[in-house]
Design a protein around this nucleic acid. Structure first.
Length: 377
DNA sequence: TAATCCCGCCATTGT
DNA sequence: ACAATGGCGGGATTA
């Protein structure tokens, strides 16, 4: 029975990784400096919950910072090197894998340079209470929650790669190692689930890539991080114009999986809360709908929709027709340029180009200063 | 079947 | 009290 007509639910189109890619190329353009969660959710066509996931991991890597309620500040890719550097230092300092017990308590978790301290203040600050004295382990019961946060898990996961020598880790191992947090015990079934989420978004940014353990054949992830780029050489910069195009919006969403639905059985109770607003209006987001910034773009887009993988979907679908390149994929840059060609979809091509460009600029930024160089605070 | 991981309920925390 | 955040894990989807 059933009546699916042409669209079947496809989990991959709703993955966090893809969502992350969309998020990135939606906000990674000049003019953007602040991001509203509601706006993001609407434009990307996903529920708020998912935005929290994305934002949390992106913040862990320095791309964003929370500014206020419902609002994040876009720092950009250029903030990554610094963040990773600090993450690395922190990791070495406290953690030290292999451990011996656990990461010494957990004190400072956040990183980021943070702006300088307020210069203002001429003197005694006022402020209310300054109870924090820092001594006394204040293992606040409250912060217990943060111990398990996605953000922290992300940072620890990254630290693991940054500090440890092993460069191929399976999520199970990672979960086990990262279990050092306060007396957690037991199986971390949940933790692994979270790790999958994290791995997906990190993969979409190409920080890591999925592979297989040579021996075990078991799936594992390899750190790509900011691979040093030897000389630019490849990648022709700015090939075409098209700096900020984006008229097409690729939303995930189309055919939901939904939970309670029209089940042919079961007592459907009255009262099912279900979602208050299921109207997933996804289909095509307006091309013009938009908001601040006068981004007027004629948007020639021919109605895109199928589109199956973002420019950075993990694992390149070998669907490519005529491609002659090694499967090893050592460098993204070369691969990227090799790929650029055929894309029947104009919009997709533009989008891809844009991303490549952004990535490039980020790389050059990184290239200027070695990643392994302590930055003077 | 095992590996992956989306979805959204609902506990927390913020205002 | 209500709104914003975000653990958590059931179970659908994929490999």
């Amino acid at each position: 029975m059933d009546m699916e007509a042409g669209s079947a639910y496809c989990r991959k189109q709703k993955s966090l990784g893809l969502l992350c890619s969309n998020f990135l190329n939606l906000y990674n353009r000049e003019g953007v400096d602040t991001i509203g969660l509601d706006d993001a959710a609407t434009r990307l066509g996903v529920e708020r919950r998912r935005i929290y996931d994305i934002v949390n991991v992106l913040e862990s890597v320095g791309i964003l910072t929370r500014k206020a309620k419902n609002r994040y500040t876009w720092k950009g890719f250029s903030a990554i090197p610094q963040a990773l550097q600090e993450l690395k230092e922190e990791g070495i300092r406290e953690n030290i894998l292999s451990n011996g017990g656990n990461i010494s308590g957990k004190l400072s978790d956040d990183e980021d340079d943070d702006s300088s301290s307020n210069p203002n203040s001429s003197s005694q600050n006022d402020n209310k209470s300054s109870s924090s004295v820092l001594p006394k382990f204040s293992a606040s019961r409250a912060d217990n929650r943060k111990e398990k946060s996605l953000a922290l898990l992300t940072q620890n996961f990254v630290k693991l790669f940054l500090c440890s020598k092993m460069e191929m880790i399976s999520l199970d191992e990672a979960a086990k190692i990262l279990l050092k947090s306060v007396g957690e015990s037991q199986p971390n079934r949940t933790k692994v689930r979270r790790l999958y989420d994290i791995a997906n978004v990190l993969s979409s940014m190409k920080f890591i890539e999925k592979t297989h353990h040579p021996e075990t054949r078991k799936p594992a992830f390899r750190w790509l991080g900011l691979k040093d780029r030897p000389d630019s050489a490849s990648v022709a910069p700015v090939k075409e114009s098209k700096k900020r195009v984006f008229g097409t919006d690729l939303t995930n969403s189309s055919t939901k999986r939904c939970k309670v639905d029209t089940v042919p059985e079961e007592k459907s109770n009255p009262v099912m809360k279900t979602k208050p607003q299921p109207p997933v209006k996804c289909e095509n987001l307006g091309v013009e709908e938009d908001l601040h910034q006068g981004d007027s773009e004629p948007a020639p887009i021919p109605n895109v929709r199928s589109y199956q993988f973002g420019p950075f979907a993990p694992e390149i679908p070998k669907a490519s027709g005529a491609e002659e390149h090694n499967p090893s994929v050592p460098d993204w840059e070369s691969l990227a340029s090799a790929y650029r060609p055929q894309y029947h979809n104009q919009a997709l091509k533009d989008l891809f180009d844009h991303y490549v460009e952004a990535w490039q600029s980020w790389y050059s930024e990184v290239a200027k200063k070695n990643p392994i160089q302590l930055v003077s605070s």
